[in-house]
Design a protein around this nucleic acid. Structure first.
Lengths: 225, 225
DNA sequence: CGTGTGTATTTTGTATACAAGATACACCAA
DNA sequence: TTGGTGTATCTTGTATACAAAATACACACG
């Protein structure tokens, strides 16, 4: 989740000291997303703390927050495993995510400033360029940013947090989900529609597009699970 | 969040050994909900571990999960505080919760068995009896159960998890928010409508009622924040 | 051979120790 | 008095030590 740790936001002077705990959590999150830690596999504490060069205390604390985020499972006295997502899990996440982004779409149209809308349009244009070059990885990253960005325009912190959480859990799946050329093209065209609706500030329409987009996302990833 | 800790569900033989960590987390959660730990106040580690009779290790792990759940804020090197909800926070949570329960309503009508529907109706009837006696506290508890129960009928674990998380954060607010007699009556009547729609398996209608119910909940609690 | 039982080894859970940082406070100077 | 500086004290962060499980494994017995 958004992990309520105060990071002195908006203070450029204060040097940010991230606790080992946080660093470790971020690190493991990455390891999971990038597939170095396989879903279902045990997390070898002894091995990892050696690799990371930290003691068990911050490491285990990190595991606890990752458990609360739903990325790992802690089995009492039996160690932790990277959580494995069943197709049903993924489906349920996309079902919820669809509604959340639908709401985000509706609210953004009401609450975003013109500047924010423009910024998102520019982001979209960068995505288009990447699509033309079929530059998958950077496209993927910007895509995440686009969805996060839209959620931010909703001015609803809870919505952002929940969206962020689900997105985090799905990242790995989508990361490997090498959707076909067709699917990619379809997704891009859906994004076109989003941007149009957002510019027109047509919340209902944008919401509908978001819901539909996520519904189709399921079809695009279902086979890669 | 649902705190991915394996509790050997569905195994009546295995004696459940809850780790200190989990017990402490539950305990602190209760302390927060019941108001023994005030929002905004610092969590005195030294004092609490003494009261609880545990060492710092499991205690601090518990704090981490509570932070991830959004109940506590950890300020690096400065200790933790019980998270304080601004009216905007509460509003944003209800905004999201409204959508989630709307979805829950829609899905339940499609996916619940007749038995499950009947069980929820019975729960509703018990609530009615409590309402007639104006027995606030037990009513409140059953109300939570009702909403949780409806979410369960959606067969969507992610939805249940998110709903549970938000409900947990709001518990304290709604707990103290002693709505007026009118407000209570209105809520009861809304519940009547829910049950009707559920029995008729009219998902769209139930969804609408849920969304509206949560919107009105905001009006019912806004002043008690 | 397979199965079970007891023991050794590893892993996990919790407590404690130590270090580093933050806070409180007293004392001095203007 | 007020403001600032240095020191003492208390809190927090991290590492380690110890205890309790769980797992692996070897050996005996059927």
């Amino acid at each position: 989740m958004s992990d309520y740790v105060d990071h002195e936001v908006g203070n450029p002077i204060a040097i940010k000291k991230e606790s080992l705990h946080d660093q470790v959590a971020t690190r493991i999150r990455d390891l999971i997303v990038e597939g170095y830690l396989e879903p279902g596999s045990r997390i070898d504490e002894g091995h990892l703390i050696e690799q990371l060069g930290v003691s068990r205390t911050p490491f285990r604390e990190a595991l606890r927050t990752l458990a609360a985020e739903g990325l790992v499972m802690v089995r009492p006295s039996k160690g932790s495993v990277v959580r494995k997502l069943s197709p049903e899990d993924v489906f349920s996440m996309l079902e919820v995510l669809g509604r959340l982004e639908q709401l985000a779409g509706e609210l953004s149209c009401e609450r975003a400033t013109d500047e924010e809308v423009e910024a998102l349009v520019r982001l979209h244009n960068r995505m288009l360029k990447l699509y033309q070059k079929r530059d998958r990885m950077p496209y993927f990253k910007l895509n995440q940013e686009f969805h996060t960005g839209l959620a931010a325009l909703s001015r609803n912190p809870t919505l952002q947090e929940m969206q962020n959480n689900i997105q985090g859990r799905l990242k790995r799946i989508r990361f490997i989900g090498n959707n076909s050329a067709d699917a990619w093209a379809a997704a891009v065209s859906e994004h076109e529609n989003m941007v149009e609706a957002l510019k027109a500030r047509d919340g209902k329409r944008l919401g509908g597009i978001m819901a539909e987009h996520l519904r189709k996302t399921w079809e695009r990833v279902r086979d890669s699970i």
